[in-house]
Lab assay of single mutants.
Amino acid sequence: MASQGTKRSYEQMETDGERQNATEIRASVGKMIDGIGRFYIQMCTELKLSDYEGRLIQNSLTIERMVLSAFDERRNKYLEEHPSAGKDPKKTGGPIYKRVDRKWMRELVLYDKEEIRRIWRQANNGDDATAGLTHMMIWHSNLNDTTYQRTRALVRTGMDPRMCSLMQGSTLPRRSGAAGAAVKGVGTMVMELIRMIKRGINDRNFWRGENGRKTRSAYERMCNILKGKFQTAAQRAMMDQVRESRNPGNAEIEDLIFLARSALILRGSVAHKSCLPACVYGPAVASGYDFEKEGYSLVGIDPFKLLQNSQVYSLIRPNENPAHKSQLVWMACNSAAFEDLRVLSFIRGTKVSPRGKLSTRGVQIASNENMDAMESSTLELRSRYWAIRTRSGGNTNQQRASAGQISVQPAFSVQRNLPFDKPTIMAAFTGNTEGRTSDMRAEIIRMMEGAKPEEMSFQGRGVFELSDERAANPIVPSFDMSNEGSYFFGDNAEEYDN
């Protein structure tokens, strides 16, 4: 993207840094990872977990959730003011799984939030270390993106479920800051804005008074975040219109849905970061690795190297396929839920299948599930090659597409044709070009129609051997075009429920 120079890199967003050079960025990201790792080690000690239990991804998720809940100030305040039966607002906890007599047992633990905050700050040299908290939120978000298709949420806001490739980060909490905003897809931002506008339509006082002023500035800020994701002048001009509207209503909703559809071809720039579970960072720190000293990046080879040398386990339900569970977590670790499966298959070195073909449910185990038949197995999170994460949407291309997802959002900077089903997408653009945004709409449609099938995206960008740390010898991959490109292809993934 041309304006790259004016933006802070995501590592800076990730670490609240002012302008830093590459070495400083690597050190501050490393410091953040160190903090998460030290916190995780301490929690495993508190909970008396064995090494194996500490490497269980379900335990990692519970521990991450506990610290996120302990620092969720708004919710904590709300819980104190609106006490609900049987919930102690000062405590947080969740299921911890232990191996007892050759069987997995679930144990519900409860801790004072104050105590968890103390352990977290102690692991982070006394700081609140917001960057580390956001990092864990993005890992949870990436896992949700890989596990669930947001059909219901899309339909509720009037969008087409086939636009799911635009929904990265749709389950990120509001408090995820600049680093969170960077990884949100165009569809996620559109959905947040539509929800806001709908509230304004239904509630006369939404934009009024002292609160209304705050609401208005939040609305304009979200519009600017979305505008910054678009790469064409016409899309940005249309966002200006939406932002400046005196009284946002149905016309703005129409414009936003139009823009979301246009992003299936004229893709937005959305950041991709490899955020790993805390149970990967903990053992690495415990083994003596100093992330701050060595430096770390979320968008280069580092996460690949770390996963190459990590042992992570997962509980497996009786009829689940461990290899499929591994694929789910591998995609989440690489922030690749909406990437082209052919690119992923090449990088991973084994075939990556669409969601609907995987015999696996989510990673988390519900409290009512029976533990008797639970097994555990090693997650295979290694890769054959590594590639640089991208934040450009890439230019655009036609490809055989599917009944489910009709476009992709690249996660890796790797040369390819970008699949999208042009006739299906263009069919949504018939007729409606009147109104105050008509010239911009016409211009956007013209650009979409001009998108050429034979153009290559990320020209000359390749993948790298894991021994090639400096990215000196790019390998331009070859793809098996007979395979499906979309992950949520004609899909039956479970729906995400809060």
Rank of each mutant, 00 (worst) to 15 (best):
residue 1 M to H: 10
residue 3 S to V: 15
residue 4 Q to R: 12
residue 6 T to P: 03
residue 9 S to H: 07
residue 9 S to D: 10
residue 12 Q to G: 01
residue 12 Q to N: 01
residue 12 Q to P: 01
residue 17 G to F: 09
residue 22 A to I: 06
residue 26 R to P: 07
residue 29 V to A: 03
residue 30 G to N: 00
residue 30 G to W: 04
residue 30 G to T: 09
residue 31 K to Y: 09
residue 36 I to E: 10
residue 37 G to P: 14
residue 40 Y to L: 00
residue 40 Y to P: 08
residue 43 M to R: 15
residue 45 T to Q: 02
residue 50 S to V: 00
residue 50 S to T: 03
residue 54 G to L: 13
residue 59 N to L: 00
residue 61 L to P: 06
residue 69 S to F: 06
residue 70 A to P: 01
residue 71 F to Y: 08
residue 72 D to C: 14
residue 73 E to V: 13
residue 75 R to E: 08
residue 76 N to V: 03
residue 76 N to T: 02
residue 80 E to M: 04
residue 87 K to Y: 15
residue 87 K to V: 03
residue 87 K to P: 03
residue 95 P to A: 01
residue 97 Y to F: 14
residue 97 Y to K: 05
residue 98 K to E: 14
residue 100 V to Y: 00
residue 100 V to R: 00
residue 101 D to I: 03
residue 108 L to F: 15
residue 111 Y to Q: 15
residue 114 E to N: 05
residue 115 E to R: 03
residue 116 I to W: 08
residue 119 I to D: 10
residue 120 W to F: 13
residue 128 D to A: 00
residue 130 T to G: 04
residue 135 H to C: 09
residue 136 M to T: 13
residue 139 W to Q: 08
residue 142 N to M: 11
residue 144 N to S: 13
residue 146 T to L: 13
residue 146 T to E: 14
residue 148 Y to P: 11
residue 149 Q to T: 06
residue 156 R to Q: 13
residue 157 T to S: 14
residue 160 D to N: 12
residue 162 R to C: 06
residue 163 M to I: 03
residue 167 M to K: 14
residue 168 Q to K: 01
residue 172 L to D: 07
residue 181 A to Q: 00
residue 184 K to Q: 01
residue 185 G to N: 04
residue 187 G to D: 13
residue 187 G to K: 14
residue 187 G to M: 08
residue 193 L to I: 15
residue 195 R to P: 03
residue 196 M to K: 06
residue 196 M to I: 06
residue 197 I to Q: 06
residue 198 K to P: 06
residue 199 R to I: 13
residue 199 R to Y: 14
residue 200 G to F: 10
residue 201 I to L: 05
residue 205 N to Q: 05
residue 208 R to V: 12
residue 214 K to I: 08
residue 215 T to I: 12
residue 221 R to E: 08
residue 225 I to G: 14
residue 226 L to S: 06
residue 227 K to T: 12
residue 245 S to D: 13
residue 249 G to S: 10
residue 249 G to L: 08
residue 259 L to N: 09
residue 264 L to R: 07
residue 265 I to Y: 12
residue 286 A to Q: 15
residue 287 S to N: 14
residue 290 D to M: 10
residue 297 S to E: 10
residue 304 F to T: 15
residue 304 F to V: 13
residue 308 Q to P: 08
residue 313 Y to S: 02
residue 318 P to V: 02
residue 323 A to R: 06
residue 326 S to V: 11
residue 330 W to T: 03
residue 330 W to G: 02
residue 337 A to V: 14
residue 343 V to D: 13
residue 346 F to A: 01
residue 349 G to M: 08
residue 349 G to W: 02
residue 365 I to S: 06
residue 370 N to R: 01
residue 374 M to T: 06
residue 376 S to R: 05
residue 377 S to V: 15
residue 384 R to Y: 05
residue 387 A to Y: 06
residue 388 I to F: 06
residue 390 T to L: 07
residue 391 R to C: 06
residue 395 N to M: 07
residue 407 S to E: 10
residue 409 Q to D: 09
residue 414 V to A: 04
residue 415 Q to R: 15
residue 415 Q to C: 02
residue 416 R to N: 03
residue 418 L to C: 15
residue 421 D to F: 01
residue 422 K to V: 00
residue 423 P to L: 02
residue 429 F to Y: 15
residue 430 T to R: 00
residue 431 G to K: 01
residue 431 G to Y: 05
residue 437 T to S: 01
residue 440 M to Q: 02
residue 441 R to E: 13
residue 441 R to L: 09
residue 446 R to C: 08
residue 449 E to C: 04
residue 458 F to Q: 10
residue 459 Q to D: 09
residue 460 G to Y: 13
residue 461 R to F: 08
residue 463 V to N: 09
residue 465 E to T: 10
residue 465 E to S: 10
residue 469 E to A: 00
residue 473 N to T: 00
residue 474 P to H: 09
residue 476 V to M: 15
residue 476 V to T: 01
residue 479 F to M: 10
residue 480 D to P: 14
residue 481 M to D: 09
residue 483 N to S: 03
residue 483 N to R: 14
residue 484 E to K: 03
residue 485 G to C: 00
residue 487 Y to P: 11
